[in-house]
Simulated assay, not measured.
Amino acid sequence: MTKTDDAPKQDEKSAIDHLREEMANYMGARLDRAAETVGQKVTDLTGRLTDVTENGGELPGIGSRLLQGESPVRALVSEKAKSAASGVADKVKDAFGGGGGGKPGGPKVTNMIEVLDVGVPLRVAYDKWTQYEDFSGFAKGVQSVSTEDDATTTWKTKVGPSTRSFEATIQEQIPDDRIVWTSDGSKGTTQGAVSFHELAPNLTRIVLVVEYYPSGFFEKTGNLWRAQGRRLRLDFKNFQRHVTLTDEEVEGWRGEIRDGEVVRTHEEAMEEEEGGEDGEETGDETEPAADETGADEDAEEVEEEDGSEGR
């Protein structure tokens, strides 16, 4: 073999040796840096331990691990893992019952306020709202509604994957004015009020205010994403469409409820309305009769005067 053939092999060997040397230098630098970092941590820890010894106090987590025989590196890794786990636990606690929003440890609350204007008279808007069993026809979040009595209804609703049933009790109901209710179910409770305001003869403003207290894992998860608020907003708009575009006349519940008790039934309210209308009609009929009688009397007096003058 000639010298010319040996030259490429020597150059290749030299390049490999140089690469190995550079790799060794790199790994050495990384190890030195790691050792320096750990050394600094240990130095800081030594200072903290000295401070505890001289001034009294509680040993930090790493210090207690070192006293139990763990190596400085392992103690640092263990404390970092513990800190990360604690952070995750705090986030879960905040999400499902603890911290932030309301009283410490208290239930999460979703506050919902919606305002809509509908192009119908005040009475029409109110009457159609009281037809609760019709809600399942236009509200996608309502599966069914059954009326137990004048103040109590049972609702079956759905928000995303969560289905829940609850019983609603009307606490106050004033015709053409407002309805205030509370509800209780296995997955949450609510307090709500809806009020009706006449803006013009054919324009009514409806204000809806609801506080929702979720209960259970899935309900609280939905609460984080405000799923209930979005569902309520969409169904409220569906009511706006329903009441504006539906020409069908309905007879709403015209009774009155105060403090959860019916103080005037629907039948009593309708009788009072009909009685008032009858009274107005009767008054209109009697007034012309009185005028006619008066006119006849005046005519007789005129005739008597004419007869007297003639005689």
Score class of each variant (00 low, 15 high):
Lys9Pro: 00
Gln10Val: 13
Glu12Leu: 15
Glu12His: 11
Glu12Asn: 09
Lys13Ala: 15
Lys13Tyr: 10
His18Glu: 15
His18Val: 07
Arg20Cys: 04
Glu22Val: 12
Asn25Gln: 13
Met27Asn: 09
Ala29Val: 08
Ala29Ser: 11
Arg30Tyr: 04
Leu31His: 11
Leu31Val: 11
Ala34Thr: 11
Ala34Phe: 15
Ala34His: 13
Ala35Met: 11
Thr37Trp: 12
Gly39Gln: 04
Lys41Gly: 07
Thr43Trp: 07
Thr43Phe: 10
Asp44Tyr: 05
Gly47Thr: 13
Gly47Cys: 06
Arg48His: 10
Leu49Pro: 01
Thr50Val: 14
Thr50Trp: 10
Thr50Asn: 12
Thr50Ser: 14
Val52Ala: 07
Val52Trp: 05
Glu54Ser: 09
Glu58Tyr: 03
Glu58Thr: 05
Glu58Gly: 04
Glu58Asn: 07
Leu59Cys: 05
Leu59Asp: 02
Gly61Asn: 09
Ile62Thr: 10
Ile62Arg: 05
Ser64Met: 14
Ser64Pro: 00
Gln68Trp: 04
Gly69His: 02
Glu70Ala: 15
Ser71Asp: 08
Pro72Gln: 09
Arg74Trp: 10
Arg74Phe: 09
Ala75Val: 02
Leu76Ile: 15
Lys80Trp: 09
Ala84Gln: 06
Ala84His: 04
Ala85Asn: 06
Ser86Ala: 12
Ser86Met: 07
Gly87Thr: 06
Gly87Ile: 04
Gly87Ala: 05
Val88Pro: 00
Val88Ser: 03
Lys91Leu: 06
Lys91Arg: 07
Val92Gly: 02
Lys93Tyr: 03
Ala95Ser: 10
Phe96Ser: 00
Gly97Phe: 00
Gly99Met: 07
Gly100Met: 13
Lys103Gly: 14
Lys103Cys: 04
Lys103Leu: 14
Gly105Leu: 01
Gly106Gln: 01
Asn111Ala: 08
Met112Leu: 15
Met112Pro: 01
Glu114Ala: 08
Glu114Leu: 14
Val115Leu: 02
Asp117Asn: 10
Gly119Lys: 04
Gly119Leu: 05
Val120Asn: 05
Pro121Glu: 06
Ala125Glu: 03
Lys128Pro: 00
Lys128Ser: 04
Trp129Tyr: 13
Tyr132Arg: 02
Glu133Met: 05
Glu133His: 03
Asp134Ile: 07
Ala139Tyr: 01
Lys140Ile: 12
Lys140Asn: 15
Ser144Ala: 04
Ser144Asn: 03
Val145Trp: 00
Ser146Phe: 02
Asp150Val: 07
Ala151Trp: 00
Ala151Met: 03
